[in-house]
Amino acid sequence: MRTHTGARIPPSLSKEPPPMLIALTLLAAAVVGFGLEWLNVPGGLIIGGMVGAAVVTLAGGVEDLSLPRPLVTGAYVVLGAQIGTSITREFIGDLGRVAIGAVLSAAMFIALGLAVAWLLGVLGIAPEGSILATSPGALTVMSAAAEQQGTGPQVAVFHLVRLVLVILSLPLLIRLSTQAG
């Protein structure tokens, strides 16, 4: 871990963050997350959790703060379980009907994401984890995948910006599509 001035904290002191800092980080993440959820902000829990934790990290002057691995692993298991519980027989039955469109759409988005990642690299502005950052996917899933590969924050920002822009542009796009049809 490092302090906000860049000074390294001795390894003996940086193995585990102080329990109070972990508690404060989780509390801030929960307060901001639930606050945004209460305000009906789409993705409020995860966006607020990120913002609340970032505020504590930045205000506390400690960089490289990591939550305990068992806590993070448990969160991934719960997230995976939540996604898994949405798989129903009806969902499986509908797969055949939408599979061709879904595969075509996914292939196009993956190709576009790879092209954007390549372009960012050529321009010298590619973030760490650029392929994950420009790939299609849900903010939570892509951020979790990036975190496991050690590129979490930059990938999360890419998906957060995409999500916010989609949410802000949807009313206009829906209005335009209904007028055109």
Rank of each mutant, 00 (worst) to 15 (best):
M1C: 05
R2C: 00
R2L: 13
T3Y: 14
P11D: 13
P11F: 06
S12V: 06
S14A: 15
S14H: 05
K15L: 12
E16S: 11
P17L: 08
P19Y: 04
I22N: 04
A23S: 09
L24S: 13
T25P: 05
A28I: 03
A29F: 06
V32F: 09
G33D: 07
F34Q: 14
G35T: 10
L36D: 03
L36F: 11
W38K: 12
W38S: 12
L39Q: 09
L39N: 03
V41Q: 06
V41T: 12
I46Y: 03
I47W: 01
G49K: 01
G49Y: 02
G49H: 03
M50P: 01
G52D: 06
G52A: 07
A54Q: 13
V56H: 01
G60A: 08
V62K: 11
E63T: 11
L65S: 05
L65K: 09
L71E: 04
A75H: 02
Y76S: 09
Y76E: 10
V78M: 14
V78W: 11
L79R: 00
L79C: 09
A81I: 08
E90Y: 06
G93N: 14
G93Q: 13
G93R: 11
R97E: 14
V98R: 13
V98C: 02
G101P: 02
A102G: 14
M108L: 14
F109E: 12
A111D: 05
A115I: 13
V116K: 00
V116A: 10
W118G: 00
W118D: 10
A126T: 11
P127F: 03
I131D: 02
I131V: 15
T134M: 10
T134L: 00
T134N: 07
A138Y: 08
T140F: 00
V141E: 12
A144Q: 04
A145M: 15
A146S: 04
Q149P: 03
G150C: 07
T151P: 01
G152E: 06
Q154K: 09
A156Q: 02
V157M: 15
H159L: 09
H159P: 07
H159G: 06
H159I: 09
L165P: 00
I167C: 08
P171Q: 00
P171K: 02
I174A: 13
L176D: 06
S177D: 09
Q179I: 11
Q179L: 15
G181S: 12
